[in-house]
Structures are given as structure tokens and as C-alpha cells.
Amino acid sequence: MGEASKISRYLYTVIVLFLIWLFLTASLDPQELEVGLLLALIVGAFTYEIFTTSGLANLHPRRVVYAIAYVPYFLWAMIMANLDVAYRVLHPKRPINPGIVECKTVLKSDVGKLALANSITLTPGTITLDVDDDRYFIHWINVTDDSVEGASMNITAPFEKFLKVIFG
């Protein structure tokens, strides 16, 4: 994905910062809104260069809808994975088969890779150890398939179908 124009990146940063300000203050007092907008404009001017590379394109409706849908999907995956690990801990035979596997990802953008790495780590049973270009090194509590394709099918693919749309 190429870099968006400076104006688009700046506006995107300001919009995100202003939304954060609304959540922080939790008030619609016009005084708070004025100061919040001013601050978003100032902080955005200093930080937009490091904050985003794709700018307003991130606010494409399809991406926003997928991002909202991803939250419950991810939470469900997290709950199931937690229960799975609890089962492994409580089971008297302790059915674990740990190992480090390599996965490949189809994601291109850095933010997408970050989101994927964090999604993998936050679902217990898998921890991202390192990311190198499109290769992920993952510690898996119960290795069922140690080939690159097989592990990717099991670990990264379920998240990728969402993250591919959200971040590219």
C-alpha cells in the first residue's frame, strides 16, 4: 500500500485523537469540545508522520464495519482459548505438546502485522515470539501440525480473514 497524501494522514490523525478525547472527557460540554479539537489539531500536527501511512483510507466504511465485527469475533476466540487452556491445566494428565512453529501471513501492512501478533498472543495457547517480514514464530501449547502451511491454517488464518480487510 502506497503512502497517502500528508493532508489525508493529518486529518485521519486529528479525527482519531478527537475521538479519544471524547472518550477521555465523556462530556459534550462545548468548552471541552473546543479545547479537545484544538489539542487534536496540535498533537496531530506533531505526530501524524509516525502515526499513519494510509491516512483517511482507514475510514473506508467496509473497513470500519469489519473492525467493529472483529471485536466480538475476537472476544469469542479469546474466551474459547481461555477455556481450552483451563481444561489443559485442570486435566490430571495435562495434555500439552508444546513447540515453536513457523507461520506465514498474507498481511502486508505493519499495523495489520501488529494486530495479528497481538491477537495471537491474547488468545491463550499461542504466543508470538518474533515477527520477521511475513514469517511468524509462534509458541504453541498443543502442536498438532508442525508444517508451515498447517500451522498457518490453524493459528493465523482465522484472524487474517478479518485483518486482511481492516488493515490490508
Partner: peptide, 16 residues
């Protein structure tokens, strides 16, 4: 990439 991208995303929020 996890560290650098995470920092990029966090810094504006920290300053705000």
C-alpha cells in the same frame, strides 16, 4: 515490527 508499530500507534495517544 510489533514494537515499532506499537510505538507509532501509542505515541499520539500518550501525548494527548
Amino acid at each position: 515490527v510489533v514494537l515499532t508499530t506499537g510505538t507509532r500507534l501509542l505515541v499520539p495517544f500518550v501525548i494527548l
